[in-house]
């Protein structure tokens, strides 16, 4: 993650200020009070956030008995394997769809006028402003077997009987893709903006067709954006709770909902904590990887 922090504009600004600051003397007397006003947040986080998270992680080794019993379930329990499989499948499908559609939108945005681009950006940001519950509700209503989409498809004669679009993996993927497209568009757009468009013009000038110059020049240059967006979307998708819980209809269970069932319904803390620990480890590991491709600080702090 530190790799990604360095080239950021704020990092550069801080670096530029460094001589000024050291000239003023970095004594404890001048900084002490600032550590004091920083400390309430650190203390609150340590006591009420990190401490219980560590306790939960510890429970994965200690409940019901000390050892790696819970972790053995990863390979021995069919239920655990099924949940991991479902989660990986849904996250992979969501990532591919969100990145594909996100690239399409970002590419179009790069090649239209500024006014048109502003409008497209406004549409990209719409989902950010609507509660995840409201969105899940909308998809649930829309995709139901007796919902308007199926009514339309049947009345147009496209299908002979209603499709099962929701309360299964398909419904979860639709809802999650919808949620994730903006998260794919933004890093891809940032990457595309960094591509020198003269390179494409040069390829055209040298006789490459429009299609060839895209596939051989533009697309390879945008790979870092695609990979970064993909990993980011995948990480976010792993921990999803609300969308799968509502659109999966209890049959399609992803890790977050599985943890919730373990803790709230059958009070198996060790099992729930183990899944949570695996989820957390995966997310942290992948964040470290994604830090090499895109500037996380900018992604998370841009808005």
């Amino acid at each position: 993650m530190t790799d990604s922090v360095q080239p950021s504009p704020t990092g550069a600004a801080v670096a530029a200020l460094r001589p000024v600051r050291s000239g003023a003397g970095r004594t404890w007397r001048s900084q002490g009070p600032y550590w004091a006003i920083l400390s309430p947040l650190l203390i609150i986080l340590a006591m009420f956030y990190f401490a219980p998270i560590l306790e939960v992680l510890w429970l994965s080794f200690s409940d019901p008995e000390l050892g790696f019993g819970n972790y053995e379930r990863i390979v021995t329990s069919d239920a655990v394997l099924r949940v991991f499989g479902t989660t990986a499948r849904i996250c992979a499908a969501t990532t591919v769809l969100a990145v594909l559609i996100g690239y399409l939108i970002a590419y179009a945005m790069m090649h239209v006028g500024p006014r048109h681009r502003t409008w497209m950006l406004a549409f990209v940001l719409i989902p950010f402003w609507i509660s995840v519950l409201v969105r899940a509700f909308a998809w649930l209503v829309l995709l139901r077997t007796d919902g308007p989409l199926n009514d339309l498809l049947v009345s147009l004669g496209i299908v002979s009987e209603p499709l099962h679009l929701v309360r299964n993996e398909l419904g979860v993927v639709i809802g999650m893709t919808h949620y994730m497209i903006p998260y794919a568009v933004l890093p891809i757009l940032a990457n595309l903006q960094g591509i020198d468009s003269r390179l494409v013009l040069a390829a055209r000038g040298l006789g490459a067709s429009a299609r060839k110059s895209f596939y051989r020049v533009y697309l390879p240059l945008s790979v870092p954006g695609i990979v970064g967006a993909g990993i980011l979307v995948f990480i976010f998708s792993l921990g999803f709770f609300v969308t799968p819980a509502i659109l999966g209809g209890g049959k399609t269970v992803m890790v977050a909902e599985f943890v919730s069932i373990q803790i709230m319904q059958i009070a198996k803390w060790g099992m729930g904590a183990m899944i949570a620990a695996v989820l957390l480890a995966t997310v942290v590991l992948m964040l470290v990887v994604v830090g090499r491709f895109i500037n996380l600080k900018e992604m998370l702090g841009a808005r």
């Binding site: 009420f48 956030y49 401490a51 219980p52 998270i53 306790e55 939960v56 429970l59 792993l238 921990g239 709770f241 890790v255 977050a256 943890v259 919730s260 803790i263 729930g272 904590a273 949570a276 989820l279 957390l280 997310v283 964040l287 998370l300």
Partner: peptide, 15 residues
């Protein structure tokens, strides 16, 4: 902000 909400939820619920 980054840790999945389900993990935060477990931590708060426990403490």
């Amino acid at each position: 902000m980054i840790i999945p909400p389900i993990i935060s939820a477990l931590a708060f619920y426990r403490l």
